[in-house]
Amino acid sequence: MEDDTVETVSFTVNGLPQRVEAYSSTPLLWVLRDHLEMTGTKYGCGIAQCGACTVHVNGEAVRSCQLPLSGLAGADVTTIEGLASHGGATLQRLWAEMNVPQCGYCQAGMLMAAADLLKKTPKPSDPEIDAVMTNICRCGTYPRIRAAIKRAAGVAA
């Protein structure tokens, strides 16, 4: 990391242009949290295991802890703060109605993953849900997450 340089990169977050100067290696996760003060995206593991940091980049759900600033030029990023205006409002409403979260720390990532799933697969089967919803929840809210996704999709529980 000694040769890590500081660079300035422009991209958009939830439709707003942003310019950030930081270490090239700074993950999008920390760019969002520390530089742009958007803390809805969570740090959980830093190694793409837990999915708490999931955001959408150019329309794809990604683990933001793995995407360095240097790869962000021109990217279009959507975070949990912008999910309601990017097709996630129904999921967010059902999350509350169906009492899905417990501690809630993993749920921003869960919602971002679920929104991406429903955009690409509007009526997902259980195996399709399993394949995409790989995030970790320590509280054990998985049954409710599945139920809420199915209700949002209008498929039988």
Partner: peptide, 12 residues
């Protein structure tokens, strides 16, 4: 449902 959830679901 828990009163904490709306803020969890919108990231605030």
């Amino acid at each position: 449902a828990k009163l904490s959830i709306p803020a969890i679901a919108d990231g605030t």
